[in-house]
Design a protein around this nucleic acid. Structure first.
Lengths: 173, 173
DNA sequence: TATTGTTATACTCTATAACTATA
DNA sequence: TATAGTTATAGAGTATAACAATA
């Protein structure tokens, strides 16, 4: 059922140790078996996601941007004139949690909140010139280092297939 | 470059509103554009991972097991006689954080810690009979509900391809 | 009355230092 | 001295209730 790479019980038992016994009865340095875990989509998905975020952080480290911050900047650039609720909900961020995040970006002068004249309850969000500049540099780092690495690892067509399947799961599951 | 599904500017502008103007100048109910975000592997990966964990929790809800707890039970079943450090590190869990997790499983009598006779510093971990029974029921729920759903959504061959790519990223990135 | 941004708060995850008991 | 399990703690991330200003 499960494809075991290094099964402890499957190894041919030598009739006699080659040179000397490791230490006492046995060293037990045998690597653990993942078993059904390696067939669990959620498990591999989680491990892969952690690796990718790690790599993203490394690649964009000079700009000090997290994946979440990068996604906010991208969305503000593509959707000028939107308020906090709209941006947050699109990214799956709860409004209360979006406040501190925006505070951080605004204190670094990457974006600004502007009280809307139509509806004075809401804040229109805008990238600053600095925000646009940082975003441009971040996009370049992501494309040339982060995504390039993944392209190298998977190849363009597999990468595209992966993206499509992940999108389908995110949308339809 | 980016495949936009509902581009605000792409819709053919009607020369005259069909019935009446929405409200004032414009309703602005236009959905946001994800833009480059939909091409970012990490973004789709994160959204997909959240959906899959959500579905896992729903499917295994009768047994009250999280994905992390399920992975521990699976690993204990496959690797009897291992200690906390070995199990935790295999799953990418830090030893201090593994303590409370084990406390939870042990208090539910799903596994036990046994002081090793060889090295009295370490605790050998074992599934209890109850733990094995719960694991068996969990495996069945995961296979027939959770993984079956994903198989239905993606098809078996695409599902296998997805798993392989995620594994490759987790191992090699 | 309902909604926007906000505060306060709590709960989970994750990460690090340091203790204890053993080796 | 080094290691296994543990404690304490701090920081993210995420979740809900409730308030002030505005609609």
């Amino acid at each position: 059922m499960t494809v075991s790479k290094t099964a402890a019980g499957d190894a041919p038992k030598p009739s006699r140790p080659a040179r000397k016994e490791p230490a006492e009865v046995s060293a037990e340095n045998v690597p653990l078996q993942l078993g059904e875990l390696s067939e669990l989509l959620g498990y591999s998905l989680k491990r892969a996601q952690l690796k990718i975020f790690e790599d993203f952080l490394r690649c964009v480290a000079p700009l000090q941007l997290t994946p979440a911050q990068f996604s906010v900047l991208l969305l503000l650039d593509r959707n000028p004139g939107r308020n906090q609720t709209e941006i947050a909900s699109t990214l799956g961020i709860l409004r209360p949690n979006f406040v501190a995040m925006l505070d951080g970006l605004e204190s670094r002068e990457l974006c600004i909140r502007i009280r809307s004249t139509n509806d004075r309850r809401s804040h229109i969000l805008m990238l600053t010139d600095k925000g646009r500049a940082v975003l441009a540099r971040a996009k370049k780092l992501v494309a040339t280092k982060h995504e390039a690495r993944l392209n190298e690892l998977l190849g363009p067509s597999k990468r595209a297939a992966l993206l499509e399947m992940l999108g389908k799961i995110a949308r339809e599951l």
